[in-house]
Design a binder for these strands. Structure first.
Length: 309
DNA sequence: AATGGAGCCAACCGCAGAACT
DNA sequence: AAGTTCTGCGGTTGGCTCCAT
């Protein structure tokens, strides 16, 4: 493997950073800022290339980083943003304060994507690239392009995303999501599950099938869930909402989540909403095929439907 | 206790585009 | 305008840790 040009000029250290190196970098940047990254290692006294310093700072040393596992809200947001943005990790990460693109990318690749694969979830195209012409396979994407399924890592259950946080200031290129609660009402949610009693084993994916308000902390940022009313969402100039009003599962626990037909999303809005889900099936996994009917996606009819334990 | 596989994540690489000369 | 350098991004990988056998 070759080295970046900035690393060719002199022998630079590679691999994991030592605490001493971290300290040097932190001290330098906190005093002088990073300025030109290529000159940082020289002035900071590091045998690293500028690129490595930049990466270390951005992904690890920055004081405003939030470390640790992703919250259910963050997870849901990642998945929903992935619908729109695909593997644009930097843009997705911008909507997750104090998270890095590397973190988001790793989380997706290790946690979410893997579970999707394990369930053989059919691929669903991202918005900009969908070709919903009824019989085309062009719209099929790799599994990591499929954002609509969330799996419960503890219970091996697959759920649809819950309402998601604000996307304030979401303006990346021609993509524009206005107002709040993007995607909050794109889907309806399965009946609530009892939370695990052992909070120490809490999994960030766990509550994704859970009623939003039960985990809702009004004092915490990015939890501005709203369980009522329609919300407008835009991609470019196109309105992709308002969408479905989240039902009250207390009243109707058998309501099957309604999932937008990708064909309708790509057409610029969600009007029509010819949802195919009419079953009273409670098993989230069993719902998978229904999502695909509307767009004639090939799917595995043998998707397991009794993984709920 | 030893070992091998899987999972996870920090860090690297190559590329593209922006900025600069 | 052309060449060079810098920055940012996405994909990939190496190595550490955990866990099952």
């Amino acid at each position: 493997m070759g080295h970046h040009s900035c690393c060719d000029k002199k022998k630079v250290k590679r691999g994991l950073w030592s605490p001493e190196e971290d300290e040097k970098l932190i001290n330098y940047i906190s005093k002088y800022g990073h300025g030109c990254w290529s000159s940082v290692p020289k002035f900071a006294g590091l045998q690293r290339c500028g690129k490595s310093c930049r990466l270390r700072w951005i992904n690890y040393l920055r004081p405003d980083l939030k470390r640790g596992s992703f919250s259910p809200e963050e997870t849901a947001l990642i998945i929903e943003l992935h619908v729109i943005l695909g593997n644009k990790w930097a843009q997705i990460a911008k909507q997750l304060p104090r998270r890095t693109d590397n973190e988001v990318k790793n989380f997706w690749n290790t946690s979410i994507k893997k579970k999707l694969i394990s369930y053989d979830v059919p691929a669903i195209p991202t918005l900009p690239d969908m070709h919903c012409n009824g019989n085309s396979e062009e719209g099929l994407f790799s599994l990591n392009e499929n954002p609509n399924w969330i799996l419960n890592s503890q219970q091996d259950q697959l759920y649809l995303p819950p309402p998601t946080p604000n996307l304030q200031g979401f303006d990346h290129g021609d993509l524009k999501l206005e107002q709040t609660n993007y995607g909050a009402n794109l889907v309806q949610f399965p009946p609530p599950m009892a939370p695990p009693s052992d909070s120490s084993s809490y999994d960030p994916l766990w509550s994704l099938g859970y009623k939003p308000h039960e985990n809702f902390d009004p004092n915490q940022e990015h939890q501005n869930f709203s369980s009522s009313g329609a919300t407008q969402h835009y991609i470019g100039d196109k309105l992709i909402g308002p969408s479905i009003v989240t039902p009250n599962y207390d009243e109707d626990p058998l309501t099957v989540p309604m999932i937008p037909n990708p064909c309708e999303i790509i057409n610029g809005n969600l009007c029509g909403m010819s949802y195919s889900c009419a079953s009273l099936e409670l098993d989230p996994l069993a719902r998978l095929p229904y999502f695909l009917v509307g767009c004639n996606y090939p799917y595995d009819p043998h998707v397991p439907n009794n993984h709920v334990e």
